[in-house]
């Protein structure tokens, strides 16, 4: 059976586009428009992987990611961040996420409620390149 991927993004066009790319590559997909809906669908549908936008109304991708990792039922689902945040804010977010695990772990644990420092399983920047997206997904799924 093909693997199921949850796309969380507040832009409906992105969900349509990404689901087309996924379908082309043999995956099935479901969409959610923000972090709140994302967590609901996640609990119900138990997808094999989550594609997560960061800047969304109601519940941001970062909050959703942390809540996901706190929940033992979902904490092992791989998450790939798909974001345009670096371009919008001018902050190199990939660097911020991956090159800084040297940040004070105790502080991280205190502020996030997570047991240890944790990072997403993949990261790509918008605009989305279909080839790159599939490559990162395959890596995260260890395919």
């Amino acid at each position: 059976m093909s693997k199921k991927i949850l796309i969380v993004d507040d832009e409906p066009d992105v969900i349509s586009f990404v689901s087309a790319v996924l379908e082309e590559n043999g995956y099935t997909s479901i969409g959610a428009k923000d972090g709140v809906e994302g967590l609901e669908v996640l609990r119900k549908e138990k997808p094999d992987l989550v594609l997560l936008d960061l800047m969304m109304p109601r519940k941001s991708g970062i909050t959703m990611f942390q809540e996901l990792r706190k929940d033992p039922n979902m904490s092992n689902i791989p998450v790939v961040v798909v974001t345009g945040v670096s371009e919008v804010t001018g902050v190199d977010f990939r660097n911020f996420m991956y090159k800084q695990p040297l940040r004070d772990e105790k502080k991280f644990v205190e502020t996030t409620g997570l047991t240890k420092y944790t990072v997403p399983d993949g990261y790509i920047e918008k605009p989305i390149e279909p080839g790159e997206l599939i490559k990162v997904i395959k890596e995260a799924l260890k395919e």
Partner: peptide
């Protein structure tokens, strides 16, 4: 907007190549 247009184009192209009319329509 450009991202949306590119996404749409991708779907139109894929829909035509694979003969998937729903994808063509959506794109």
């Amino acid at each position: 907007i450009l991202t949306g247009l590119r996404g749409g184009m991708y779907m139109v192209n894929t829909g035509m190549a694979r003969d998937k009319s729903y994808m063509l329509q959506e794109g």
